[in-house]
Design a binder for these strands. Structure first.
Length: 519
RNA sequence: GAAGGCGUAGCUCAGCUGGUAGAGCAACGGACUUUUAAUCCGUAGGUCCUGGGUUCGAGCCCCAGCGCCUUCACCA
C-alpha cells in the first residue's frame, strides 16, 4: 500500500520548485516567537480594527477557501488548553466541566495587498498539508469569525503527499493505523488521548513520589521470563551465546530490590507477551508494578483507590465518567467483594466443595478435562482451574465496578501468601471495572521454601506456558536472604488509560500498535 | 489459531439480475478582495487488493492467497 499518485506528486513537486524560485526555502527553518493558536483565540476581538493585537502563529494548512484577491486558510496546531464547557447531566440540568481539548484551528485571511508581492505569489503555491508561519493582526471578519489578518507569510515545510479529505477525514482503520501521524491531525481524539495518557503517567509518578515510593529501572532481557503466566518473546545474545527472553512482568526484580532494602519501590515499563492481538491486547504494553515492605493486600487496596481517583481527577472532569453507552462512577469508597461470596452468588455453590464445583461446571458446559498436548490423553483439570473458569464465565462480566474482588483460590497464585488459617485461599485482589481487570495485587509470598515448592508444582489442566511454574533459582536464593513481608500491586497502564478516556480499543491509546508489515 | 465482514480515483463512498467505471471533496485551467464544506465555467484522474477459473462478456459469480475490522480462544 504505497499510494503514489504521480499526478499529485508532480504538481506538488512543481509548486516546490516555484517556491524555491521565489527565493524561499521550501523546508523552512527556525521560526521563533509564535503563539499557540489556542492563546491567540483567547485574545479580545472587540477592539477597533486599528488596535488589533499583533500575533504570530505556525501550523498546518488544513482547509482553504480561495477568492480572486483574498484567500482564507485554516491553520492547525496542537495547542490545546484546559477549557470549561457546560455539559448536560442526566436530570437535564447543566454543570460546568473542565476538559482537555487538544488541537486548535484558526482562520487566516491572506489578502493580495496585505502580504506583498512575494507573499501573494507564495499564496498561489500553497497546498493542504503545508506548514506555514503567519504574522499579522488578530480580529474578527465581517461574518464574525476570529481571524488572523496576515501581513507576512513564512513558508515552513512542503507536503509532497496529498492529505486526507478536509471534510470526511480519515475513516479506514488500517489507513489510520499505518499513517498515525495523519490520524493525530485529522482525528483530534487520538492526540487528545495520547496527551491524556502522558498526564496520567505524570500523575501516577507524582502521587507515588509523595507517598515515598522510589522509581527504578530493571532489565528487559531476562534469562528466565517469570512473574506471570504468558508466553515470552525469544531472542539471543551473540557475545554470551545464550538465549534470552523479553520480560513478561516486572515482579521478580522488584522483589529482589525489596530484599535489598528499597522498601517502597515501583517501575513503569514495557512488558512483552507473545500472545494474540485484540482490542484489549497489544504484544507490548505498559505495566506499573509496585511493592511496599511491611504492607499487605489491604494496604494495596487503599493505595490503588487513592491512586486511580487521583488519575481520574487529573483529567479535570467529573469522577463519573462515560464508558461506551454506560458510565463508571469512580467516587470512593469502592465496593469490596470476596471471590468466594461472588462465586456462591453467581455460580450457586461453595467454591471449596469439589463435587459441587464439578456439577456446576457441567451445568455451564465447562469441560472437566484439558488437552495435554499432541497425542497425549486428556487430563482432569485441577479443582482451582475449574473454579476460575466458572468465575470467568459466570461472574466477570457482571462486575460493573469499580469493585475489588479479593481472596482468590490459592493454586492460581503461586507468588502469593496464603490467608492465615486457610491455606486454600490466597491474599490477592483484582480490581474490576465493566468486566475488565484493571489492577492485580497480592500479599507477596516471602517464604523461600514455599516459593520453591509452588514454582515446581505444575497445575494440571494448564499448559506449561500458561502456568507460572517456572523455576527461578536466583530469585529463590534472593528470598532466602530475607524479603520483608510486602504488599504488591500491578496496574495495566493501557487499560487504565482506555477506561479513563472512553476508548473501547487499546489501539486508541497506543500510538503505534503492532501491525503486520505491508507486503 | 477459528468464524463472519470488508478491500473500487489522493481521501470518503456509490455501483442494480453479470452488459462501456461513478459521485462528493481534493487536483489542474479560468472568473471573483470578507469566505465558512465558498460559488460558477471547464479539464484530468482507475492494476476495481493479488493470482487463477466460469462466461460471448466479471468490480459483481467460483477457488486460492494477502491485508484490515469484528467476535471467539490465549492473556492484562
Amino acid at each position: 500500500m504505497q499510494p503514489t499518485s504521480s499526478e499529485y506528486e508532480a504538481t506538488r513537486a512543481e509548486k516546490l520548485s516555484r517556491i524555491e524560485a521565489l527565493g524561499l526555502d521550501p523546508w523552512g527553518g527556525r521560526f521563533d516567537g509564535h503563539m499557540p493558536i489556542q492563546t491567540i483565540l483567547g485574545l479580545p476581538t472587540d477592539v477597533p480594527d486599528d488596535q488589533r493585537p499583533r500575533v504570530k502563529a505556525a501550523g498546518r494548512i488544513v482547509s482553504r477557501r480561495q477568492g480572486g484577491k483574498v484567500h482564507f486558510l485554516d491553520l492547525w496546531d496542537w495547542s490545546g488548553q484546559p477549557t470549561k464547557r457546560a455539559t448536560k447531566t442526566e436530570d437535564g440540568s447543566h454543570e460546568t466541566q473542565e476538559f482537555l481539548d487538544w488541537s486548535s484551528r484558526i482562520q487566516v485571511m491572506v489578502g493580495q495587498k496585505q502580504v506583498g508581492e512575494t507573499g501573494w505569489a507564495l499564496a498561489q503555491e500553497l497546498d493542504l498539508g503545508d506548514l506555514l508561519g503567519i504574522e499579522g493582526t488578530f480580529g474578527k471578519t465581517k461574518r464574525g469569525e476570529p481571524t488572523i489578518f496576515a501581513e507576512k507569510l513564512t513558508f515552513l515545510s512542503k507536503s509532497l503527499q496529498p492529505h486526507p479529505d478536509k471534510w470526511a477525514g480519515m475513516q479506514d482503520m488500517e489507513f489510520r493505523l499505518r499513517h498515525r501521524y495523519l490520524d493525530l491531525v485529522y482525528n483530534p481524539d487520538i492526540l487528545d488521548k495520547a496527551l491524556k495518557r502522558i498526564r496520567i503517567l505524570r500523575q501516577i509518578r507524582s502521587y507515588l513520589e509523595k507517598q515515598g515510593y522510589v522509581e527504578v529501572e530493571t532489565p528487559t532481557l531476562h534469562a528466565i521470563a517469570g512473574g506471570a503466566a504468558a508466553r515470552p518473546f525469544e531472542t539471543h545474545h551473540n557475545a554470551l551465546d545464550i538465549p534470552l527472553f523479553l520480560r513478561i512482568a516486572l515482579e521478580l526484580h522488584l522483589k529482589r530490590l525489596l530484599v535489598g532494602g528499597i522498601e517502597k519501590v515501583y517501575e513503569i515499563g514495557r512488558v512483552f507477551r507473545n500472545e494474540g492481538i485484540s482490542p484489549k491486547h497489544n504484544p507490548e504494553f505498559t505495566m506499573m508494578e509496585l511493592y511496599q515492605a511491611y504492607g499487605n493486600y489491604e494496604t494495596m487496596m487503599e493505595l490503588t483507590e487513592g491512586l486511580i481517583v487521583a488519575c481520574v481527577d487529573c483529567l479535570g472532569g467529573s469522577r463519573v465518567i462515560p464508558w461506551a453507552d454506560k458510565t463508571i462512577d469512580f467516587s470512593p469508597p469502592w465496593q469490596r467483594r470476596q471471590y468466594g461470596e461472588l462465586f456462591q452468588e453467581h455460580v450457586g455453590c461453595d467454591m471449596l466443595d469439589p463435587a459441587a464445583v464439578k456439577v456446576a461446571a457441567q451445568k455451564y458446559h465447562i469441560p472437566l478435562t484439558a488437552d495435554a498436548g499432541k497425542g497425549q490423553p486428556r487430563v482432569e483439570k485441577e479443582h482451582d482451574v475449574l473454579v476460575h473458569e466458572l468465575f470467568e464465565h459466570r461472574v466477570e462480566d457482571k462486575l460493573v465496578g469499580p469493585v475489588f474482588v479479593y481472596d482468590y483460590p490459592a493454586a492460581l497464585c503461586p507468588l502469593t501468601k496464603r490467608k492465615r488459617g486457610n491455606p486454600a485461599i490466597a491474599e490477592r485482589f483484582e480490581l474490576y471495572v465493566h468486566g475488565m481487570e484493571l489492577a492485580n495485587a497480592y500479599t507477596e509470598l516471602n517464604d523461600p521454601v514455599t516459593q520453591e515448592q509452588t514454582f515446581r508444582k505444575q497445575l494440571t489442566g494448564l499448559s506449561e506456558e500458561d502456568s507460572m511454574a517456572k523455576m527461578d533459582d536466583d530469585f529463590v536464593r534472593a528470598l532466602r536472604h530475607g524479603m520483608p513481608p510486602a504488599g504488591g500491586l500491578g496496574v495495566g497502564i493501557d487499560r487504565l488509560v482506555m477506561l479513563l478516556t472512553n476508548s473501547q480499543t487499546i489501539r486508541d491509546v497506543i500510538l503505534f500498535p503492532l501491525l503486520r508489515p505491508e507486503k
